[in-house]
């Protein structure tokens, strides 16, 4: 087996990949996330964000006071679309649909 050191196991992102992103000029956590894909899998950064921060500190990329987590977004725990859909049926204030830019045709 090839020896690799991972930052993010969901998307197979290694320390080497993060170093390459830093080399290409990406310096912030948001940028490195997008360029390498780290933190975009099922764990959403729960496992990999802190190791990346530690790496950035070691590389002297950002002072620790400048480190900010990438945007926290729902869901922070697993919820199924079925449970959410049933929530909508019970909700009284669901608006009627209008057309969307994706569905727009003019």
């Amino acid at each position: 087996m090839t020896t690799r050191t991972f930052i993010c196991r969901c998307e197979d992102v290694t320390v080497k990949d993060c170093d390459a992103a830093i080399e290409a000029g990406f310096e912030t956590i948001e940028e490195i996330k997008r360029f390498t894909g780290m933190g975009t899998g099922p764990c959403q950064g729960r496992e990999c964000m802190v190791p990346l921060c530690t790496l950035l500190q070691e590389r002297g990329v950002e002072g620790s006071d400048a480190l900010a987590p990438f945007t926290a977004r729902p869901p922070a725990a697993q919820i199924s679309l079925g449970a959410l859909a049933d929530g909508a049926r019970e909700s009284t204030a669901i608006p009627t649909p209008t057309s969307s830019p994706e569905g727009e045709d003019s």
Binding site: M1, T3, R4, T5, F6, I7, R9, V15, R46, E47, C48, M49, V50, P51, T54, L55, I79, S80, G82, A83, L84, D86, G87
Partner: peptide, 29 residues
Amino acid sequence: EHLVRLRPEHVVFATGTREPLLTIPNNDL
């Protein structure tokens, strides 16, 4: 499985900590 909508006046975060990955070789095995 269902959805719970919570509308409190105060929220106390006691979410604790977790254990992220350590960067040692082949830490994914």
